[in-house]
Amino acid sequence: CTHSQEEIKKFRDQGIPDPCSQLPVEEHMERWEKMLSGEYPEGAAVLRIKTDPAHPNPSVRDWIAFRVLDTEKSPHPLVGSKYIVWPTYNFACAVDDHMLGVTHVLRGEEHAVNTLKQNYIYEHMGWKPPISIHFGRMNLEGMILSKSVIKRGLDKKLYASYDDIRLGTLAALRRRGILPEAIWDIVLEVGIKSSTAKISIEKLHAFNRKYLEPRANRYMFVPEPVRKVELVGLQPPITAEVIVHPSFPERGKRKITLSQPFIYVSEKDLEDKALRLMGLGNFEVVDGSSLRFLNNDIVFAKEKKLQIIQWAPVETSVKATILKAEGNTIQRIDGLAEPSTSDLKIGEQIQFVRIGYVKKDQENTYIYTHD
């Protein structure tokens, strides 16, 4: 066909045969030889698959199978300018799948029209077409999944890489601490559907929490602003025993020794009249700078409904930062962590008590996973 793009579109839109389709075979063979020999410049001629000019979908009507490209101006990355006539996606896929013996094709619903087009190749050639199964997209609410948006963001330096925690790529989800099992569960629950499935991020977190909860040991982190307080009524050295995981007592407890009666707590935790410090006991809030020891009776704490709060030793606390994705921004939560967090390996997943699950991303920096 030697008509322009505008003319081809006009024929398709009106559902009428292209005059080129009425030409004799000999004329088409001569034109094809001219295409191969380079007599037609780019855009001057195309090879089209004869279908049905009145097909309900205009894009299926005598669709284009080969184009002439100026490969001197735009050489192919592998073969340079050796070839000037190139197949389109649908022609190449149909032939490749047949030659490779493909029996089943799994592709997105947006390719349903391509399946219709490719079936004409199989029909013309007398080949058995593969079984095509189309499925819809899986969209995570609140996550950036568009490849074009991600690519533009990377080009403009809005995102550091494909594992930027604001994105919905598998690399980003992995970096955030989403486990493979959680994604498998989501996929199996949704199944193969032709329509787009919209998945709430809370649903993914629920699946992930099921696997992460028994694995993640508990650690203490005090978010800024912090307050240095004195523990009144306890004589140094003071040894605290912090449980590693409440559901697995066999994992034991960590010991934190204070040579001085001073710790850091979150300022907002001092608003209560009494509280329980993890591993240290029950305390009365005297003022903004001191806590008076009452007892270490867990029953007392439950009866008084005392809030169990985390803390960090003044002498050996570790400065730490949690990075939390909030839409298209990253929230930075600075604070102090207990000393044993320094022994955690990069990639290890834990729970900061009353903060949420986190994954150690680099030294003293953690990625927030979910609550």
Rank of each mutant, 00 (worst) to 15 (best):
H3Q: 12
E7V: 09
K9P: 00
K10C: 04
F11E: 07
G15R: 06
S21N: 02
W32Q: 01
E33R: 14
E39Y: 02
G43F: 05
G43Q: 02
A45C: 15
R48I: 02
R48V: 00
I49L: 12
K50D: 08
T51I: 02
P56Y: 13
N57F: 01
V60I: 09
R61D: 07
D62K: 05
F66S: 00
V68I: 15
L69Y: 04
D70Y: 07
T71G: 04
K73T: 15
L78S: 08
G80A: 00
S81L: 02
Y83Q: 03
I84W: 04
V85W: 05
P87N: 03
T88N: 09
Y89D: 00
N90H: 13
N90S: 02
C93M: 08
A94I: 01
T103I: 03
V105Y: 04
G108A: 05
E110T: 06
N114R: 08
T115K: 01
L116T: 10
K117A: 00
Q118I: 03
N119Y: 05
I121Y: 03
H124E: 00
P129W: 02
S132H: 11
R137F: 00
M138T: 15
M138E: 06
L140W: 03
R152D: 13
L154R: 02
K156E: 15
K156C: 08
K156R: 15
K157Q: 14
Y159V: 05
S161Y: 05
D163S: 12
D164M: 03
G168D: 02
T169P: 08
A172W: 04
R175I: 06
R176T: 05
L179C: 08
E181K: 10
W184Y: 11
D185C: 04
D185Q: 12
L188K: 11
I192G: 00
S194Y: 09
S195H: 14
S195Q: 14
S195G: 09
S195Y: 09
K198R: 12
I201P: 01
A206W: 01
R209A: 15
R209W: 14
Y211C: 04
L212V: 14
P214G: 06
V222R: 05
P223A: 06
L231S: 07
V232I: 13
G233K: 10
G233L: 10
Q235L: 11
P237K: 10
E241G: 08
I243H: 08
I243D: 11
V244L: 04
H245A: 13
P249N: 12
R251H: 07
R254T: 07
I256M: 05
Q260E: 15
P261Q: 09
P261I: 11
F262S: 13
I263Q: 06
Y264P: 01
K268A: 14
A274H: 11
M278S: 14
G281T: 10
F283Y: 13
S289N: 14
S290L: 06
D297I: 10
F300H: 14
K302L: 12
K302I: 12
K304H: 13
L306G: 12
Q307K: 14
Q307I: 03
I308Q: 11
I309K: 10
A312G: 07
P313Q: 10
V318C: 04
V318M: 08
K319N: 12
I322P: 04
K324V: 10
K324D: 02
A325Y: 04
E326R: 14
R332A: 07
S340M: 08
L344G: 03
Q349K: 12
V353D: 13
I355T: 15
G356C: 10
N364F: 02
